[in-house]
Write a protein that binds this DNA or RNA. Structure first.
Lengths: 202, 202, 202, 202
DNA sequence: CATGAATGAGATTTCATTCAT
DNA sequence: CATGAATGAAATCTCATTCAT
C-alpha cells in the first residue's frame, strides 16, 4: 500500500516545514500560508493532512520531542559509566541546538508557553508528563553516580529537577545572548558542580 | 472643568488589569476588549493611555520586573552574610510567585518568548541586559561565599549563570506541575548544592 | 449685552481656526481636536458653539465666501469702466489667494467636492446658487463691455460661464503647480482674450 | 485544481465597482464593504487584489485617466484640420461624461482634492504632470490654429492653460447645475471664443 | 461656561478555513 | 488528491460626541 506511505511522508514534510517557520516567527505570527510555502505545497493541501493550525503545532511539538529523544538515547546507549552517562545527557541538548537544529532553538519557548496555557491533563501539549519522565531518568542516573559510595542525604528527585532545571535555565540565557557563555561547556560544568555538591552534602 | 484625573494612576490600573489577563490568556489570545473589561473601562479609553497592545505588553513587562526588583532588594537589604544573601536571592522568586503574584506566574513565559523573538538591542523587551545584570550580582555574591577560604577554581560568571539557570529551570517545571516539588525548598537546596559543588571542586 | 458679542466672537475664532486646519488637512482628515487645538480651546467647548463637525464645515464655507465677497465688492466698488471692472473681478481671486489667504487655497477643492456630493436644494453647501449669482454679475459686466458698440452675437450667459470657468480652471492648475504660470497674469489675460473673442465673433 | 482566475479581469471588476461607489459617495464616505458589495464579492476578497483603500483609489484614478485618454486619442486620430482637432478635444470631455461615464462625473472632484493634498512628486496621484502634458498638446494645437497667418502675440503656453481651464471650470459649474447650460455647446463656444480672442490680439 | 476624560459605533484589515474545480 | 480563490468572523484602532465636574 504505497498510498499510506506517501501520506505519512507528506505529513512529515509539512511538519518539518512548520517547525522551521514556527521557530522563526513563533506560533501566533505564523500563517498557514507560510507553512504551505515552506513545504512547497498549496495552502489547501495542508488541510488534507491536518485538521487545524493547532494540530500542526501539537504535532510539530511531538515530532521535535521525538527527534530529541532519539538523539539522547543514541548518545546514552553505549555509555555504561553513570557519570559519563549523566554528562552525555547534559550536553545532549547543547549538541542538538548547536548542530542541525540550531535554527529551531526558539520554538522551545513557544512550546513551553503554550503548554503552560493549555495545562490540562491529557492534552496534546502535556509537558508535565515529559518532565516527569526525564526527572525519573536523571534521578536514576544521579543515584548511580552518588551511591557508589553511600546513600545520598538529599532527595534525589529534587536533585534531578535541579539538574534538569539548570540545563534549561542556561538554555534560556544562552538563547537571549549567545555570547554570554559557551552552552556546552556550561551544561557540563553545571552537571559536575551539582554532582560534587550532592556528594559533599554528606 | 472635567474631573482631574491622575493619568499615572490610571495607567497603572490598566497595567494591572492587563497583567491579570495576559497571565490568564497569554499575549496573543488577549484582546484589547478583554483588558478594557478587566480594567472596567471602555475599549477606547485604553487608547487614551497606551498607543497599542504591544506597548501595553512592554509596559506590563517592565512593571512586573520593577515589582520583582523591589521585592528582591527589600529582601537582600539587611542581610550581610553572603550565603544568607544568596539563599534569600534564590528564594525571592519563590516568595514572589507563592505570594501576591501567584496568578501572574504564567506571564513570565510570554515575556521570555517575546523577548527572544524581539531580540534586537535597544528594544523594549530586552531581557539579555537584565540577565547580564543579574549574573553580575550573583557572581559577586558567589565569590563572597566561596573565597572566604580560597580562590575558586571555576569561572564564577558561568557559575552565576548556572545558579540563575537552575532557579528558572525549576520555575518552569514547577509551573507545569506544582505537585512535582516545593518550589521554595527546591531553590534553596539548589543554591546550597551549587555552592557546595563549587567549594568541592578545589 | 456683552455675552452675545462674546459668543459671536468665539464662534468666529473657532471658524478661523477650522478654516486653517481644513485647508491644511482637508475635511475628512481634520479631527475636532485639531480644530480645538488650533483655536486654543477645549475640545468640548467646540460643541457649545457648533452642533457638529459638518456644521463647522458649512459655517467655514460661508465665512470664507463672505470674505471673498467682501474683497470683490471692495475692489469693484469704485471702478466705473466696465472692462476695468471685469479685469478687477478676474484678478480678485488671484489677489485673495496670493495675499492673506494663500494658505487657505486648498480648502476650495473640498468645498467643491462636498457641495457636489451634497447637491440638494436648500442645503448649507449650495454652491449652485452662488455660481448663478456670479454668472449674473459677470453677464452684466460682459454686456456692458461688449455692447458699447453693438449687440453681442453670442449668449452672454454662457459667455459669463466661460469666463468664470476659465478663472477657476486656471486656479486648479495653478494650485497643482504654482510654477506653471503666474496666476494673476493668467486671469487677466484670460479675461482680455475672452472679451476680444466675443467682440470678434460679430 | 481551483478555478483558474484571470486576476487582471477581477482587478478591473473591482475597479469598476469602486469607481461607481466613489462617484456616488466620495472617497471618504466609501467603505471597503461598499465596494465589495458593489462588486458582488466578499469584503476579504478585495484584499486579495489590492492592499488598501487608497491603493484602490489611486488605481481607479489611473483607470479613469486611461479611459479618458483613450476616448480623446480616438477622437483626434483622424482629424487633420487644427481647428477641428481643437474643437474635438474640447468637446471630448463633454462626450465622455454625457455618454457612458455620466455616473462617474463626481469622482473627478475627489481626484483633484486628493491630488492637491498629496502633491508630492512621484506620487500615485500626480495630476500636475498630466496637466503639463495636456498643456503641451493644446499649446501645439493652438499654435497650428493661429499661426497659419502670423505669429501669435500672446504666450501660447498660458493660452493653453486658459483653454483647458475654461473647459474644466465649465465642467464644475455644469456638475453643480446641469440646467445652467449645455456642456458640449459651452465647451465648443469657449474654444472658438478663445481662438478668436487670440487672433484678434494681434 | 469650559473642559477633557470616557466612550462605543464603526472602519480597516488579517487569516484560518472551506470548497468548487 | 491538490489547489488557491473566496470568505467573514474577529481583531485593532480612530474619533465625533457626550457629560460629570
Amino acid at each position: 500500500m504505497p498510498k499510506k506511505i506517501d501520506k505519512k511522508e507528506k505529513k512529515i514534510k509539512i511538519l518539518e516545514a512548520s517547525i522551521r517557520v514556527f521557530a522563526k516567527k513563533g506560533l501566533h505570527n505564523t500563517k498557514i500560508s507560510d507553512i504551505a510555502e515552506a513545504a512547497d505545497i498549496g495552502k489547501g493541501t495542508i488541510y488534507e493532512y491536518y485538521r487545524s493550525k493547532n494540530e500542526i503545532f501539537a504535532a510539530s511539538f511531538h515530532f521535535f520531542l521525538e527527534k530529541v529523544d532519539g538523539v539522547i538515547s543514541k548518545r546514552l546507549y553505549r555509555i555504561s559509566d553513570p557519570l559519563e552517562k549523566l554528562l552525555a545527557y547534559s550536553s545532549a541538548w547543547a549538541e542538538i541546538f548547536e548542530g542541525d537544529y540550531l535554527e529551531y532553538v526558539t520554538i522551545v519557548l513557544d512550546f513551553w508557553a503554550e503548554s503552560i496555557r493549555d495545562n490540562r491533563e491529557a492534552t496534546a501539549l502535556n509537558l508535565a508528563k515529559i518532565y516527569d519522565e526525564n526527572r525519573k531518568i536523571v534521578k536514576s542516573l544521579l543515584e548511580d553516580c552518588i551511591t557508589k559510595d553511600k546513600t545520598p542525604s538529599v532527595d534525589t528527585k529534587i536533585a534531578a529537577s535541579i539538574l534538569i532545571g539548570s540545563l534549561e535555565g542556561l538554555f534560556i540565557q544562552w538563547i537571549l545572548d549567545r555570547s554570554a557563555f559557551d552552552y556546552k561547556e556550561a551544561t557540563e560544568l553545571s552537571t559536575k558542580i551539582i554532582i560534587d555538591g550532592l556528594k559533599k552534602g554528606d
